[in-house]
Amino acid sequence: MANVIARLDDVTLSYGDRVVLKKCSLDVVEGAITCIIGMSGAGKSTILRLLDGLRKPDVGHVYVRGHDICHMRESELIEMRTKIGFAFQFAALFDSMTVGDNISLPLREHTSLSEDEIREIVVHTLDSVGLAHTYDNMPSELSGGMLKRAGFARAVVTNPDLVLYDEPTTGLDPIVTHLLTDTIKRLRQQLSATAVVISHDLQSIYMMADYVAMLFEGAVIEYGTVEEVQRSMNPIVQQFLQGSEVGPIPL
């Protein structure tokens, strides 16, 4: 049985009257890339926020490295987050800082490294996502794909053992999508880190995923390897994978 680095245990979470997750359980296997698929608004991004302690469930538990993070104090959550990387959907770089400063920030705040050492690490990390030349650029000067890669660089610069990617390829052309998918796979190998990826892009998922979880109406309805999910007999999963309008998924 593979080691589990993070676990959602019967989690229910609502935003106002809207129930987003309903008794949702999910295991994230250590060292693997787990992709979460599902309809828009199914609660996929909420799962990432739960794993990073940015949201607390109404009911249920979230475990990271065996610790229930629902009852952690803010200082403990901050400590925990330094070992988790989060690449946001729209990169969420701080627009008042250069790309270099954005990526240096966690190192400046959480390590006692000198400025020279930080710069060396940041340049190396930017180089690993093909953006070494953008160190002094402002985020507003980068394209959508470059922003996402800079977001990746910030997420992994502290060598986290768990990296969360929120829709890394959404809205990008096929070439950049392929490039980012390769980058996620390469970063996982370089860092030996676990990755959880939210995506709608099935081709990317087939390329990188070790495990796939399908979320529907607030719960995981299918979980397995890519082949297992592709062979699923569940009509909801098949309708989603085929992109068909006809089937049990209400449109």
Binding site: D52, L54, I78, A92, L93, F94, H110, R154
Partner: peptide
């Protein structure tokens, strides 16, 4: 603006208050 562009969550995710 930082809230709606997820920059506040990004700060928190970097372990910064």
């Amino acid at each position: 603006s930082m809230v709606v562009t997820e920059q506040i969550e990004a700060l928190q995710s970097l372990g910064l208050a």
